[in-house]
Structures are given as structure tokens and as C-alpha cells.
Design a protein around this nucleic acid. Structure first.
Lengths: 205, 205
DNA sequence: TATAGATTCGGACCTCAGTCCGATTACGTT
DNA sequence: AACGTAATCGGACTGAGGTCCGAATCTATA
């Protein structure tokens, strides 16, 4: 007292070592259990138990089941984003917007084909639109749409097109309707091809 | 015994009068509570209590929360179906497929604007695709698409277009993104207009 | 009307996502 | 090295959806 202001800790946002250790334990256990038994058949209590932490710890780190699933998915999601932000054409920059959109959808469908159950867990309810990843996808699609057709309502059309890549719809098409992945991809290509006006490349500048 | 086969009840599918009475009590209570406090803020126990029946009765009649919401919605849904099956053009028969599709989407969006919360309850999770109403919508859209463009994959495109009319997307666009109903409708019109090839009417035969 | 038998009723019970708060542990200071 | 503070830990608790089964009730038959 009497020494004026003192900042007791200079970095309030650093993670305590036990917290970091537990986060890794939880992620590792969740990855393993989700892969072993399917994401839908693993309760949060089981994840906590397998990680050797309490339930409170699990929920403080990852606020909800959907968030935990999203965290497990994050490395695949990051790879996808790398692909369409800095990767090779036609997914990455350099190809016409139309081709990039088609490649983007096919990459999303490929990820759904492998991780549909996990993505379903992450998108339960209105959680999909709240994920940061969704904002990235929407921005990407909206930019490409605006580039292809400046007159269209790119903001709205982006959300609309992304609805065609939703996990629930995908699982329904594949499992219930029995459509092949190739057919779903072809449908996406058709949709994009009709929505995005085909135009000659106008050069770089 | 010794009289051969006897059918103890000739009509095993008639509903007992107490069962019918309880169904009406439940539907009435659910309608009232959903309207008073919003569908998301009413628990199944409350519905059962307000209807004066036990929880078991509620769940035997309407197997799940989503089914109960769908039952409450059924009259609006029936009105919509009447409209596009036997109603006046452009929603009903008589108009070109393209105009009918646009009118169908706008009618769906109008229903979402009024009942979005209730429809959200009914479409929680993958329940949307299991509802009989979805099958009717899909068939309707697929028929119109096939009529407009026999070369397209109408079965798949129908599901894709219906994804743009999902309740979760609608609530996100209206409440989170703050788009007007008119804008969402215009977006639907644009989408359909670009997907469905504009062609001259070829006559009736 | 009395009986038989199936159907329904209804509340106790289960599972699971998410919350809360006292006990514990790590980090910076002295 | 010992201490004080602040964050974390973790399990008990809540609330809600959904299940189960003995008890009550309805319908058809005699």
C-alpha cells in the first residue's frame, strides 16, 4: 500500500501451464473417442473422463459440445482455408471466380465426405452461423460472387449458396437419398455454373 | 375357444375417445403456450402440465418436441400445400414453372416470417428432412424444375434450392444479418431466375 | 350389466448438456 | 524459500428431452 498503482500480473491473457496441459489432454481424448465411436456416440462426461479432467474444466475450455467438435475440426478447416486463400488454382487465387467457386464447393464436399459426423456435431442447431469458419467461407464466396457479377446481391447469395453445402443436407443426400459424392459435386457445379454468369476473362488490370 | 379365429377388435386403428380428447387438449395447450411465450421458451413438461396430462401421454401422442411443433404448424402447412397444389396462379397450376417456383419460395418465406420460431423448433437437427411436409415440398419443386428444364438433375436441385428456404438460414439472415424480408425474397427470385432457364411457353400440348 | 382384454394414462426414472462454487494449484512478489 | 492472490480444477447440481411400466380406463362381447 502507498506505492501507487501496481499491475500484479503483466500478461493476464497467458494460459497457465495446467490449463494448457488440460486443453491438450481434452483435445487428444476427444479426437480419439470421436474417431473410435463416432462423434454422435460420445458424451461430454466420457470425454472429460477419458481426458482425466472434471466436467467443469471441459466446459470452461470449450464452452459447448459444438465448440469442442469445431476445435477438433480446426486443423482440417485451417487446411481448407489455406487452400482457397493461398493455395494453387483453381482453388486458390489465379483461376476465374467461377472455377474457384466450383473448386471451393468440391473441397467442402470432400471434407464433408470424410468428417460429416463430426461436422454435424459442430453445426448442431444455429451454431453453424456463429462459427468463425462460417464467416470466412461467406466472405470468400461473397468476394468471388462480387468479382464474377458485381450487379448481384453477393452478400445474400453467398449465404444461399453455402446452404447447399450444409452438413445436414449433405448427410441427407448421401445417406437417405443415396446419392453419390460425384453426383452431389456435379449438382454443385451445375448450380454455380448457372448462378455465376459465364464471361470472358477481362485481363488482370 | 374352439370357435376358430376371432378378431377381438375389428378396427385396431381407431383412436380411443380419451386418447382423442387428450390429443386435442395437448395441441390446444401447445398452441397457446407457444404463442404466449415463444416456442423456444416452453418445456415439454409445461405443455403436459397445461394440458392436464402426464408426460408419457404427451410423448406417446407426439414422439418428440419437433413432432409436436410440426403438429401445431400443420394447419398452416396444409394451407400452403393447398395453395400450390390447387390454388390460383402463380402459386397454383397454370403459371410457368419459373413463376410458380418464385411464388412457392415467397409463400414459404412469408410463413417463415410469421412462424420462424415454431418452424425452428420443428426443424431442430436433421428433423427437417424426416417431416412428410419436406417430401411434399421436394416433390413439388422437383416437378417444376423437371418441367422447366428436363435436362437438369431435378431431384438434387430441389433439395439444394429448398436449403435456401431453411428456417435456420432465414432466422440468421433476418435477425443476425438484419436483411429485410423483401431482400430475402428478391434473392430467392434472382436465384430461381438464374437456375431456371427462361424459355417461351410451349403451349399446353 | 358384468367380464375380458387390450390400450392408454401418468409420473418416476434415465441420460446428457451445461452451471456453480468451494477446494486446489500455479504464478509473481518479498 | 515462503506468501498472497488470482486463476483453475472438478464434482455435485439443475433442467430438459425422452423412456418405462404398473395402474387406471375404455371398448367389445356375453
Amino acid at each position: 500500500m502507498g506505492r501507487g498503482f501496481e499491475l500484479p500480473q503483466l500478461a493476464p491473457d497467458v494460459e497457465r501451464v495446467d490449463a494448457a496441459r488440460n486443453r491438450e489432454l481434452i483435445l487428444c481424448a476427444a479426437r480419439r473417442l470421436f474417431q473410435e465411436r463416432g462423434a454422435g456416440c460420445v458424451s461430454m462426461d466420457e470425454v472429460a473422463g477419458a481426458a482425466g479432467v472434471g466436467k467443469g474444466t471441459l466446459f470452461r475450455r470449450f464452452g459447448s459440445r459444438a465448440s469442442l467438435a469445431a476445435a477438433v475440426l480446426s486443423e482440417h478447416e485451417r487446411a481448407l482455408q489455406e487452400g482457397f486463400i493461398r493455395g494453387e488454382p483453381p482453388l486458390g487465387p489465379g483461376a476465374p471466380a467461377r472455377e474457384r467457386l466450383i473448386a471451393f464447393g468440391e473441397a467442402m464436399l470432400d471434407m464433408l465426405e470424410v468428417h460429416s459426423e463430426l461436422i454435424l456435431s459442430a453445426e448442431t442447431g444455429p451454431a453453424r452461423f456463429a462459427h468463425p469458419a462460417y464467416a470466412v467461407h461467406r466472405l470468400h464466396v461473397a468476394l468471388l460472387l462480387g468479382e464474377a457479377d458485381p450487379a448481384c446481391d453477393a452478400e445474400l447469395l453467398a449465404d444461399t449458396l453455402l446452404a447447399a453445402l450444409g452438413a445436414e443436407l449433405f448427410v441427407y443426400l448421401r445417406k437417405v437419398r443415396g446419392m453419390s459424392l460425384a453426383r452431389v459435386k456435379a449438382g454443385w457445379g451445375q448450380l454455380v455454373g448457372e448462378v455465376v454468369v459465364q464471361r470472358e476473362p477481362t485481363g488482370v488490370g
